[in-house]
Amino acid sequence: MKKNIPLAIVIILGFIFVGWTFIPAKWMQDDFYTAFLEFTKTMSPFAVFLGIYSLVSMHYNRIRRKVPKWGYSYVTLTGLVVTATLGFVYGTQAGTPVQWIFRNFMMPISATMFSLLAFYMATAAYKSFRARSIEATVLLVAAIIIMLGQVPLGMAISRSWPINILDISQWIMDVPNLASKRGILLGVGLGSVATSLKILLGIERTYLGGGD
């Protein structure tokens, strides 16, 4: 029973989605589906509560148990309380403290995290592009051509060649790259249809919480 009712809900709602896909009529698209969608919105507030509860309880435990670097948990909890309080008191419009925090803390910190990508990409490229096998060599050569196509040096080199390096890099992107991408996407599409079908038919039930 604990599993059957949720399963029934999933299956019924799943078939409604199927109907929504194939039936363009107004009764399905507007009257039924749109009204239905409103319900899903009610789920979020409860989940937010759960999320906050989880965050607080985890960090509270960390502080209580004095696990290594527990001091940072204070930072997290302070951030949560301060931002939320400021938001409730002053609102979230432009010019309020919340926006100030967002612009002066969130944005630079996020940008810093994102800029790490440049460094990681460099090391990743350095480590992995080795001509270990024929496939790896192909990958290596393609990578160098594409990168050369992005910088003036590549253009300078290719001016003296009969074939433009930009054309080659474009060809690599358009033909082999696109072909493999499509192959993967085809598999992904089919896999996701299969997974959806498994859920719709009740074969796959992990999402209901463990067990098979």
Binding site: Y126, K127, I144, L153
Partner: peptide, 23 residues
């Protein structure tokens, strides 16, 4: 663009050096 080009070339150089070492 200067910065971007230099970084690109540096990565290419690293890849090539890495491969020479590997061989």
């Amino acid at each position: 663009m200067n910065a971007q080009s230099v970084a690109h070339i540096l990565i290419i150089v690293f890849i090539i050096l890495g491969n020479i070492g590997y061989f």
